[in-house]
C-alpha cells in the first residue's frame, strides 16, 4: 500500500470511530491502534487476575459463612473478568500464553493498587468499597469504547461487578456498627487504602502521556483528574455515613466549584510502586508465576489426552 492509501484508510478509520461505529477484529486498523489496545486490554486483564490475590488472602479466614461465599464469588468473578478480557485481547492476534509471559517477565503492567497487602478483614471491605468504586468509575465508560470485543467484555464485566462494591461497603457498615475494635479496624483500612485508591485513577493529566489519543479512540472519556474528582466527590459522603474519617486534613467542600478539594498525592510513592518497589510486587508476581508453572503439567496432560482421543477417533472411523 502506498503512503497515500494508508493515510486515506486512517482517515476513514478515524471517521468511523468519530461516528460511533465499532471496530471489529478483522477490520483494518492502524498498527498503533492494535498495539495500544493490546497493551491496555491485557493490562486490564492482568489487573483482574493479580487482583484476585490480595482478596484471596482472606477467603479461608472470612469471619462468617455468608461473607465467605460472597468473597469467593467475588474473587471468582475477577477470574471470569480476566478471562473475558484476555479473550477480547486475543482477537487482536496475541495469545493468552504470550500475555502471561509478558506479565511474568515484568514487561506488562497491572494496576499498582494490588501491590499493597491485605492486613485485616477490614481491608476486604475497603477494597470492595474503594478499589472497586474507583474501578467502576474507570470501567463504565469503556462499555462504549470503540473496539467491539473490548466494549462487549466490559458490558459483561460491569453488569457482574455491580455487587462487588456493595459487598465491600456492607462489610464496612457491619464493622462501623460493631464494637470499638471493629470500627478501628475499619478506620485503619480506610487510612491505608485511601491514597492508593486515588492513585489508581492514574497520573495527573499533566504527567499522562496517552490521554489525547485515548480520548479519540474512546478508551477514555474523561481525564484522570476528572475521574479522580468524581471518585472523591462520591466517596466522601459514603465515608460520612460510615462515620469514618478520610485521612486527608486538606479535604474540604468547595462551595464555589461544587467539588471537594483534596490534598497532594504522593506521586513519588506511586511511581516507586509502578517500578516494582511496592510492598507486595514480588510476591504477587511470584504467586502468578507459581500458579502457571505448577499448572504446566496439567495443561500438557489435557493436551496429550485430547490428542490421544482424536487419534483413537480417527482410527476407529
Amino acid at each position: 500500500m502506498s503512503e497515500a492509501e494508508i493515510k486515506n484508510l486512517e482517515e476513514q478509520f478515524e471517521a468511523k470511530i468519530a461516528a460511533d461505529e465499532k471496530i471489529e477484529p478483522k477490520d483494518w486498523m492502524p498498527e498503533k491502534y492494535r498495539k495500544t489496545h493490546i497493551r491496555q486490554i491485557s493490562q486490564h486483564a492482568h489487573s483482574e487476575i493479580v487482583g484476585m490475590l490480595p482478596e484471596g488472602n482472606w477467603i479461608t479466614r472470612a469471619p462468617s459463612l455468608r461473607r465467605k461465599v460472597a468473597l469467593l464469588a467475588k474473587v471468582q468473578d475477577e477470574a471470569g473478568h480476566g478471562l473475558y478480557l484476555y479473550s477480547a485481547c486475543e482477537t487482536l492476534g496475541i495469545s493468552r500464553e504470550q500475555m502471561y509471559e509478558d506479565l511474568h517477565s515484568g514487561k506488562a503492567k497491572y494496576s499498582s493498587i494490588f501491590n499493597y497487602p491485605t492486613l485485616t478483614w477490614a481491608d476486604i471491605g475497603a477494597i470492595g468499597w474503594l478499589v472497586d468504586g474507583a474501578a467502576i468509575i474507570n470501567q463504565v465508560p469503556l462499555c462504549n469504547t470503540s473496539f467491539g470485543p473490548y466494549a462487549r467484555a466490559m458490558v459483561r464485566v460491569c453488569k457482574e461487578e455491580s455487587f462487588h462494591q456493595r459487598q465491600g461497603y456492607e462489610i464496612m457498615l457491619s464493622l462501623c456498627n460493631g464494637t470499638e475494635e471493629q470500627k478501628q479496624m475499619a478506620q485503619d483500612a480506610l487510612d491505608r487504602w485511601w491514597w492508593p485508591s486515588l492513585m489508581m485513577l492514574g497520573p495527573t493529566d499533566a504527567a499522562s502521556t496517552h490521554t489525547e489519543q485515548s480520548m479519540k479512540w474512546k478508551l477514555k472519556r474523561k481525564t484522570n483528574d476528572e475521574l479522580r474528582q468524581q471518585f472523591v466527590d462520591q466517596t466522601v459522603p459514603q465515608a460520612d455515613i460510615l462515620g469514618l474519617t478520610i485521612p486527608d486534613p486538606e479535604l474540604k467542600w468547595n462551595e464555589e466549584t461544587g467539588h471537594y478539594d483534596f490534598g497532594e498525592i504522593d506521586w513519588d510513592e506511586f511511581w516507586q510502586v509502578v517500578k516494582g518497589h511496592g510492598p507486595m510486587n514480588k510476591k504477587r508476581l511470584e504467586d502468578r508465576k507459581n500458579a502457571w508453572e505448577n499448572g504446566a503439567w496439567v495443561r500438557e496432560a489435557a493436551t496429550a489426552y485430547a490428542r490421544k482421543q482424536n487419534d483413537r477417533k480417527s482410527k476407529s472411523a
Partner: peptide, 30 residues
C-alpha cells in the same frame, strides 16, 4: 514446549424459544 490451548466460541440459549447467541470465548483442550 509452546503449548497453546485451543480457543472455543461459546453460544448460549438463555431460555427456550430464543436462539443461541454468541457470548464469548474460552480455552479448552477438548
Amino acid at each position: 514446549m509452546k503449548n497453546e490451548i485451543p480457543l472455543w466460541e461459546v453460544f448460549i440459549r438463555s431460555k427456550n424459544g430464543l436462539e443461541h447467541r454468541h457470548c464469548g470465548s474460552l480455552h479448552a483442550e477438548d
